[in-house]
Design a protein around this nucleic acid. Structure first.
Lengths: 129, 129
DNA sequence: ATTTTCTGTTTACAAGCGTAGTCTTGACAA
DNA sequence: TTGTCAAGACTACGCTTGTAAACAGAAAAT
């Protein structure tokens, strides 16, 4: 039984994702801690963060452990799984599952910096071995 | 004044996107025509397609021209604009705007076929000139 | 021991989305 | 000419999302 990459129907919304990022960067965090890192940037108030955390918990994306009177939250899914899933979704939906057209697109629209190009080239070289 | 890439706040939802794909593949099409190409795959009924078309029209993403008693629909935004926008959104949200990490991710997860690799390599070579 | 202060839970609510039924009108066939 | 049918317009409705307030319980402070 391979480990579950992401709960089946439970998608993570964009706002929830912002919270996940905070937890991926550093965890465990209390609700207030999370707010400290995301509220300003997103113009949210604490209740909003609490709601998002609650939803993430019920979706099984974050777990809690009691610490004194409060809860500490920590991610239950890997960032790489989430990111991978979202990337693949996009590639599937927009490019029929092929990654090359996506790359071509980014290239055409100058969405690739020189650094990107070099990095990708290096990666390619590496994979080729 | 560059031509407007996509209406400001008017995002195209996933279901709407399926309709757009049909119209990008072939246009103009009547609502029934669209249904012919997308209803089966998505398990939709004609009313659903009509609703989606209506929403797309009000969002300014598709235009209509009367043909006899019916309307023919055709896209008003370019597929490449949409695709580019969505791609960039993802890259921004998940990879801080850098495309290389996305590429690395796809590579790691074997989401890249050999054909993809070759194609990308070719593109790279081309861009380098 | 009582009040204050956190923190989590519950409830709220408008907008967007997926999905679809009903209404209306005009063309076409009989 | 009138009934039928097809097409668009309008309406509906439950679910998710973004955003947040109200409530409850417990710990801390006084």
């Amino acid at each position: 039984m391979a480990k579950r990459k992401q709960a089946p129907g439970e998608r993570i919304s964009e706002a929830e994702h912002a919270v996940m990022e905070a937890l991926w960067t550093e965890n465990p965090l209390s609700a207030a801690d999370v707010c400290d890192r995301v509220c300003a940037a997103n113009d949210w108030s604490i209740p909003t963060v609490k709601t998002l955390l609650g939803r993430l918990v019920s979706k099984g994306a974050v777990g809690t452990e009691p610490e004194g009177r409060r809860f500490l939250y920590h991610p239950l899914i890997e960032r790489s799984d989430y990111v991978g899933g979202e990337s693949r979704r996009l590639v599937n939906r927009l490019f029929g599952g092929r990654a090359a057209p996506l790359f071509a697109h980014l290239a055409e629209n100058e969405a690739l910096t020189d650094a990107d190009l070099e990095e990708i080239e290096a990666l390619l070289k590496e994979m080729r071995k």
